[in-house]
Amino acid sequence: MSFVFYILAALTVAGGLAAMLLKNTVHCALALTVAFAGLALLFLNLDAQFAGFAQILVYIGAVAILVVFAILLTRGSETPRDGVFSRTWLVGLVIAAGVFAVLGWAVIGSVRVLPHETAVPTVTVLQIGNALVSRYVLPLEIVAVLLTAAMIGAVIVAMHEKEGQK
């Protein structure tokens, strides 16, 4: 746990908090991007280059853009007059606490299972690729099928309706 880690962690948490607390929705989206960038930098801090750059490419390059597009193309870009908290905040709090508890339990459980590594493991892109098509080939294929299905769905949604079917 170095000094750099604390800076990055603070940045990520601040970004996340701002994404929740800011009033203007586009500001929230931009703050979320800061949180994404903080996560990517945390990956890089752990010498996980591939994960870090993929995080930037996918989350900042695509997901953040998708979010702002969704905000601007719907009517959500207007700043709400009343507070940003919804009326069902109690339910939200309960769900969030539940998710946090599960995640915390998983993390604490995994610390005991995994051996404590002393040296930094060097993971090259080649190794990641090999692992993806050998050991993790089934998850990869499932993700591929899921994405293909999503793409076909998107094409069908965007397709012109035939004249007669109106």
């Binding site: 586009v26 931009l30 991007t33 280059q49 591939f50 750059f53 993929a54 930037i56 490419l57 900042i60 390059g61 695509a62 953040a64 853009i65 702002v68 601007l72 090259t124 892109v125």
Partner: peptide, 25 residues
């Protein structure tokens, strides 16, 4: 000389899009 140099490049060029959006918005 990065092992994932090409990926780094594309990650950086993808993040320019957001600043273009920020400028316009």
């Amino acid at each position: 000389d990065m092992d994932a140099g090409l990926l780094f490049y594309f990650a950086m060029s993808a993040s320019t899009e957001l600043s273009v959006f920020m400028a316009g918005w």
